[in-house]
């Protein structure tokens, strides 16, 4: 499948970035940009617009939700998938109301993560999201 590139992977933990990097490569991605903090992600965002952002919620410094709100002032369209380590109703509601398109718990099995990303990136769902 054709992925909108580049893909930003924002997480303070390198093992998560590498793991997700391998996953999206399996989906066909070739250009992956990693950021280890929200600030770093926003710096990169100023230089280049991604086609998909995978964004950790719980990061030291600027949190994922703050970063997401910042991203949304710059780009209302880019699909953003939040990465969480727990899924409380409160977190899901807060992420969704801050403009996230989806969220993935990090211990979700690989095949399930791939399915969620595919579903999010199929043209039909992109059309639905267009204003």
């Amino acid at each position: 499948m054709i992925l909108p590139e580049p893909i930003f992977i924002v997480d303070d933990e390198i093992h998560i970035r590498r793991f997700l990097g391998l996953l999206v490569r399996q989906l066909g991605a070739t250009r992956i940009v990693e950021a280890a903090s929200g600030d770093q992600a926003l710096e990169l965002f100023a230089r280049e617009r991604p086609g998909l952002v995978l964004l950790d919620i719980n990061m030291p410094g600027r949190s994922g939700i703050e970063t997401l709100r910042e991203i949304r002032t710059l780009d209302a369209e880019v699909p953003v998938v939040m990465l969480t380590s727990l899924t409380s109703r409160q977190i899901i509601e807060e992420t969704m109301s801050s403009g996230a398109d989806s969220f993935i718990r990090k211990d979700t099995p690989s095949q399930e993560i791939i399915r969620i990303l595919k579903e999010l990136l199929t043209p039909a769902s992109l059309e639905n999201e267009a204003p």
Binding site: E13, H15, F19, K106, D107
Partner: peptide, 12 residues
């Protein structure tokens, strides 16, 4: 949980 998920994912 996160490091374990990575160990599992990367070994996969």
């Amino acid at each position: 949980r996160n490091p374990l998920a990575s160990i599992r994912g990367l070994s996969e």
